[in-house]
């Protein structure tokens, strides 16, 4: 039995200031998340400069709380991990500089972590990953299908060519008059509506695992615009349901095709949109039909958090994947070239 790894992880890539202590990549000793969402609501979306300002206000408090809740002194830590990217650059820099200062002060190794790898490994906080697997990452910034045949081996087999699915959710929410962030509201309304509009499904060319949601978004906007001009009634619940059905159809069809072609027995779904009830239900029935193990993290691990960064960092620690003090934030990092 090798020695335990206890990692302090920090995540500030968007609008949550988060720190966590995780043992051996699976056991959450603490998981502190300070959400800024109330501040960004008034703008109808995350404002990068405002996000960065909030991060610096709370960063040391969040770190202190994570250590206290874990009952862990810095001397007991094996390393400090931090999200290197992708994300909002100004926001990332707060977490990265705090992580570097902390690792320097306590002579701890510094582990840079890819944000999307974090979302995938959020599942490891609940159950072991079984390789090979396919992971669908769905959030406000990402829509990606990733194949993994082992730990830290990421192959992007499909990604969005335009809007991320969460972005489309937020825009549709706005046009039907729902507050930011719109995803959960659209999901809630859709349960009371019917798929009456039959919006287009963008499957793209045969054999492609890529996604496109801008056409669907435009179809919703144009349909509503036409009906408003003609003075026709718009049932918001039906718009929400019709939009959601289209998005879920495409996401699940492409994912299940990939599961079949790559002959995997484990499907992971992660990212903020993984909390969507329509998407969860469809995957649950498809996976039981095809005898595939499905893992979707609890809601608090779907959205941004630092525990998921600590879960990846455990494996990076085993591989001595460390950064020096000149680590910088990057708004884009190719996950295939990350390790």
């Amino acid at each position: 039995m090798t020695q335990d790894t206890v990692i302090l992880s920090i995540e500030t890539s968007c609008d949550e200031t988060a720190a966590s202590v995780v043992r051996n990549g699976t056991e959450i000793m603490s998981n502190v998340v300070v959400s800024q969402i109330e501040s960004h609501k008034r703008f109808g979306g995350v404002v990068p400069e405002v996000a960065s300002r909030h991060h610096v206000e709370t960063i040391t408090l969040v770190i202190e709380q994570a250590l206290e809740e874990a009952g862990m002194a810095p001397e007991g830590l094996s390393a400090v991990a931090v999200t290197e990217g992708p994300g909002l650059i100004g926001a990332l820099l707060v977490g990265i500089n705090a992580a570097k200062a902390f690792s320097f002060a306590h002579d701890l190794p510094l582990i840079p972590v890819h944000h999307i790898a974090g979302h995938i490994y959020a599942n490891q906080l609940e159950e072991e990953l079984e390789f090979p697997l396919v992971a669908l990452i769905v959030s406000g910034g990402h829509t990606e299908l990733i194949y993994m045949d082992d730990h830290l081996s990421f192959e992007v087999i499909g990604e969005t060519r335009d809007d991320a699915v969460g972005e489309a959710y937020d825009k549709v929410a706005r046009v039907i008059g729902l507050p930011y962030p719109g995803g959960p509201h659209v999901d809630r309304l859709s349960r009371e509506g019917a798929d009456t509009f039959d919006f287009p499904r963008a499957y793209l060319e045969q054999g492609s695992y890529d996604f496109s949601f801008s056409g669907l978004k435009s179809a919703v906007i144009n349909t509503l615009h036409n009906r408003r001009q003609k003075g026709l009634e718009i049932k918001k619940e039906d718009v929400a349901r019709s939009f959601q059905e289209s998005a879920v159809d495409v996401l699940t069809k492409k994912t299940m095709d990939a599961v079949e072609e790559y002959e995997v027995k484990h499907l992971l779904v992660a990212g903020g949109v993984a909390a969507n009830s329509g998407l969860r239900q469809r995957f649950e029935s498809l996976c039981s039909e095809h005898d595939v193990k499905l893992s979707i993290p609890k809601l608090k691990f779907c959205t941004d958090n630092a525990a998921m960064i600590g879960a990846v960092a455990h494996h990076l620690y085993q591989q001595n994947h460390f950064a020096s003090l000149d680590l910088n934030g990057r708004n884009f990092i190719d996950i295939e070239l990350f390790v």
Partner: peptide
């Protein structure tokens, strides 16, 4: 510079907290 000042303040706060 907003970003520049934040970097210095973040480093200083975290070092002061850690030490």
């Amino acid at each position: 510079s907003y970003t520049g000042v934040r970097i210095g303040v973040t480093v200083a706060k975290t070092l002061a907290y850690a030490f």
